[in-house]
């Protein structure tokens, strides 16, 4: 069995424009990433909040590295900080080619506060962000529904 590898990073959003435009852009990011990930055997989650991204990528090491490098070259974000990277025993998002949460309000206000802190501080806590991602990742189909 190939070695499973996981990387978790956060970065600052550079996409500008109104909410609809940003939603549209996110939708395109997600669909592309889901297609790529399915092809490459990757799973993970993407969180978009407070003008920041946090993303988990997990899968075979070569595929993770290729996807990670692709993401690094994207000019829609900056200040990429890797919170966690290394081999793992099992996937945290086995059923999601790229789960997504994009609401600014979370069901659990504590999580929202923790997330804010994690993004705000210069030394964000990787486990905390991963925990939040695990906890809140659901398909936000409403949010992503095509703009009428």
């Amino acid at each position: 069995m190939t070695l499973l590898y996981r990387v978790l990073y956060c970065s600052r959003n550079l996409m500008s424009g109104d909410a609809d435009a940003v939603q549209c852009e996110i939708r395109s990011i997600l669909s592309k990433s889901r297609a790529n990930n399915e092809r490459d055997g990757l799973t993970g989650g993407l969180l978009f909040s407070e003008g920041c991204f946090a993303q988990v990528l997990e899968g075979p090491i070569e595929a993770v590295e290729r996807a990670f490098e692709r993401i690094q070259c994207d000019d829609r974000h900056e200040e990429v900080t890797v919170l966690q990277s290394g081999p793992v025993e099992a996937r945290d998002f086995p059923n999601w080619s790229m789960a997504f949460t994009g609401r600014d309000q979370f069901a659990d206000p504590l999580d929202a506060a923790a997330l804010k802190q994690a993004f705000g501080s210069r030394s964000p806590n990787g486990d905390a962000v991963l925990g939040i991602l695990r906890g809140v990742v659901v398909r936000e189909e409403d949010w992503l529904a095509p703009v009428a």
Partner: peptide
Amino acid sequence: RRIVDVLGRPYLIDGHL
């Protein structure tokens, strides 16, 4: 500024960050 930013972003190579 973009060179400094993009080249300064992390690299993942053979499992090394």
